[in-house]
Design a binder for these strands. Structure first.
Lengths: 177, 177
DNA sequence: GATTGACATGTTGATCTCGACACGTCAATC
DNA sequence: GATTGACGTGTCGAGATCAACATGTCAATC
């Protein structure tokens, strides 16, 4: 149940409303986890019932700002340190990088160029983020990691586009058009 | 619905039984997608009903070997080339790399060392796989990409372990023990 | 001849996740 | 004064996913 701990992690950095959490999932945490508000609000209720978070402020528009309780901080640390990570993955982008090799060179080139555009866009956003972070800032290292991985991906994709490589296992029966 | 296309992609490379698909998900496709047999069997039935796969052989123990139909190949290509990729992520490992920064230096070091061990293990498996693949083989490039990303991760983790860095936003209230 | 372990297929109930529906507020612009 | 758009919270139904349950086969070893 990583959603729970993703929320705890976001609240540990900064108390927030459910609405703000939904935005933060797609900003700072976009490359690690995603959740929509229809999942966030019920989970906040459960977390409050479990005593891991509490409402620390009520603002305009019935807004409730949540923050971690002591026991929420304990649980977050326990999960990070003691629980064995679930390494199983479900990543559509990675799946497409794998299966792209099944396409004929023309299709593959088009698909990988689209991916390359996406990576370059992401890289610019990360660079913009990096420029407003001080080097010592808590999450500067994570931004740096994102940039390094994007650089590897961009280089690999560029190679794939330039050297179309083998035609896979085709012999004319494959998904080649 | 990526599970469907992951199965189509695996079958495009090699006709298989449901049981074999379950193993292949955790071998060649482990870093991209995971599915257990309780999800694979019903999906194969749906794919057969939709005419995207067909039973091409029946063996011992009621085994059924599935292969792509012409329309299955069309669908796989259509998905790869025409459908907009879903870039949203849910990756517990990445989440932990982010949230690790909230821990105190001692905990963080322990957690990142555990991750480093895991990456090194994965790297060895990839290297073993690489050594049995010919350079021109269809998926040699993907193995190479995996190795490059692992190298970046390993370097980053080693830096984090050596230079504990900032203590996050702690001031003694965080999940630090 | 019995046991063990890999092979093989299926179902069921619980939980996770998403898109769509639904309601309401506040500030700024027209 | 009306409209618009961001803010804000919630529910519901459908589909995705997993762990557990359930059943049976075949080959090799003891």
């Amino acid at each position: 149940m990583s959603l729970r701990h993703a929320i705890l992690g976001l609240l540990e950095r900064q108390p927030s409303t459910g609405y703000e959490l939904a935005r933060r999932f797609d900003l700072s945490l976009a490359t690690a986890w995603h959740a929509s508000h229809s999942q966030i609000y019920p989970e906040l209720s459960k977390l409050e019932a479990a005593g891991l978070v509490e409402v620390v402020a009520r603002g305009a528009r019935q807004s409730k700002t949540y923050a971690l309780t002591e026991s929420g901080r304990d649980e977050l640390r326990r999960w990070l340190v003691e629980e064995t990570p679930d390494r199983s993955q479900r990543n559509e982008g990675a799946l497409r990088l794998f299966l792209g090799q099944l396409l004929d060179p023309g299709d593959r080139q088009a698909v990988f160029e689209r991916d390359l555009d996406y990576i370059e866009e992401q890289t610019e956003q990360l660079r913009a983020l990096q420029s407003v972070l001080e080097p010592g800032e808590p999450f500067a290292a994570q931004v740096d990691l994102g940039l390094r991985i994007n650089a590897v991906l961009a280089a690999w994709l560029a190679e794939q586009v330039e050297q179309p490589g083998p035609d896979g296992e085709h012999d004319g029966r494959g998904p080649a058009r």
